[in-house]
Design a protein around this nucleic acid. Structure first.
Length: 258
DNA sequence: ATGTCCTGAGCTTCAGGA
């Protein structure tokens, strides 16, 4: 069994005790982290728990890291397609023969702004990379904060998100196009039609207490990995703790190769 | 428009991002 998790921390410094406590209990083989929010990365804290790590950071914003209990080879620290893009949003490694890409897609608000255009361009670049990945034999997992609400059932109330970049037709069409390439949405493929499953809740207006959330953290699996998918669950526990991230972890398990 | 939380400059609060 191979357990992979993903968690947007909204600052690794503010959430270090949360994530280390969570790792001790859940013991995933691999953890993808997003929104580190700072240049410092506490690799020693994770090393003492048995995890090697690789991180791409920048000052104040963004930042992604991958923790692994198995040998990990770093392949890329940036998404190709725009040399002028300096945001820390992408990390690609190989662990146990699986290509794992950790992504933190742009938020894109407000709709119609330069940020929205950057979000769409970033998704186009990721789609092109996902097409290139299909050309080799390496089973591939893309996980992280996609900042896309795929379908109406992935938010508590569509009308509340009608004007938000995460819910616009353009990013949703691009997410669907990724599925159209043959990648499976791990959570939805095992929870068809189920409502009320979210990975993010706003800090304000008691959104979590009232389960007014959205599902924007995803795992996309190439066909050979989708065949090995055993479970995919959202762990709401951390979102209910003191000083939580606004996101909560998503966890999936793959069966071992025969 | 509102709500809340985080970072970082360099204030004893603010702007910017989410």
């Amino acid at each position: 069994m191979f357990k992979v998790a993903s968690w947007n921390l909204n600052s690794v410094r503010s959430r270090l005790s949360h994530v280390t406590a969570w790792l001790k209990v859940r013991e995933p083989d691999v953890l993808l982290l997003q929104e580190l929010k700072g240049t410092e990365f506490p690799s020693e804290a994770f090393k003492s728990l048995g995890y090697d790590s690789v991180a791409v950071t920048q000052k104040a914003y963004n930042g992604v890291a991958i923790l692994s209990r198995h040998p990990m080879k770093t392949i890329a620290k940036a998404l190709v397609g725009d040399d002028s893009d300096s945001h820390a949003r992408f990390l690609e490694v190989v662990i146990k023969g699986i290509r794992i890409a950790n992504v933190y897609l742009p938020n894109g608000n407000p709709v119609g702004s330069d940020k929205f255009a950057y979000k769409l361009a970033w998704m186009d670049r990721l789609t092109q990379q996902m097409i290139r990945w299909k050309r080799d034999d390496v089973p591939t997992l893309i996980g992280g904060d996609f900042n896309v609400i795929p379908e109406d059932i992935d938010c508590h109330k569509p009308s509340s998100w009608k004007h938000d970049a995460l819910f616009q037709p353009e990013p949703r069409a691009r997410y669907r196009a990724m599925l159209g390439l043959g990648y499976a949405d791990a959570f939805r493929s095992l929870h068809v039609g189920e409502i009320g499953h979210f990975t993010f809740w706003d800090y304000f207006r008691q959104a979590f207490q009232n389960n007014r959330g959205i599902r924007i953290d995803h795992f996309l699996l190439s066909p050979r990995l989708a065949d090995r998918l055993e479970s995919c669950e959202i762990d709401k526990g951390p979102r209910g703790q003191e000083k939580p991230s606004d996101h909560t972890p998503i966890i999936m398990t793959l069966s071992d190769l025969p």
